[in-house]
Design a protein around this nucleic acid. Structure first.
Lengths: 97, 97
DNA sequence: TAAGCATATTCTAATATACTTATATAATTA
DNA sequence: TAATTATATAAGTATATTAGAATATGCTTA
């Protein structure tokens, strides 16, 4: 069993990568397929995005749903929305990007 | 100039180490000297604590004040208190430790 | 000034992270 | 069924992070 500090630190670690944070922000606005995310984050390769999504999935932050060819990712953990909202209102003018 | 996402990610990175997070939590409760922190986090060496405090200082999260022999650390950035409070109420029963 | 306490610095080893390229899988369409 | 599209996985490389040991610095007090 992880200590609470360890658990929270783990969540922060997942969000502490700029690109992963941006992915989360986009998914909070709207659920999205991998290629839609790839359009938004076009400086990142498709495998890189896939790997980040994998980390988010493994940490219970996102969900995915297959729609034929396409895989739609969405936010699973509502608490992440609260957290990002706190971050935005404390550290950002309007949005995170 | 860093993007806002990069800035926020940087703050999260600083807090994403369990021991650094605990240090911040203790300092939110009370300002404290290095050796007081060392008593609380006795699984960590004194140099390790000093290094963590250095990271927190370099990122504008803590302040310090010399009182003779002793150096008292305290929270500098009020936004960190808000953030930790959000984390606690979302992810913890009561406290982070 | 010497001894002792509090804190910081430097270096190193172990490990983790992020990204790229190449390749695989699975669904779709021609 | 072949080609195409969407996504995932694997292997490899570069870099970052963490912690500890050893040592240094700087007060304080005898």
């Amino acid at each position: 069993m992880l200590s609470q500090a360890q658990q929270v630190a783990q969540i922060l670690k997942v969000l502490s990568n700029e690109n992963r944070l941006l992915i989360v922000c986009y998914l909070i606005q709207n659920q999205m397929s991998v290629s839609q995310l790839h359009e938004k984050l076009n400086h990142l390769s498709q495998p890189a995005i896939s790997q980040h999504l994998n980390v988010l999935k493994a940490n219970g932050i996102v969900n995915y749903e297959k729609q034929g060819n396409v895989i739609i990712y969405s936010i699973k953990d509502e608490r992440i929305k609260t957290l990002v909202s706190t971050l935005k209102s404390n550290y950002c003018d309007i949005n995170l990007h």
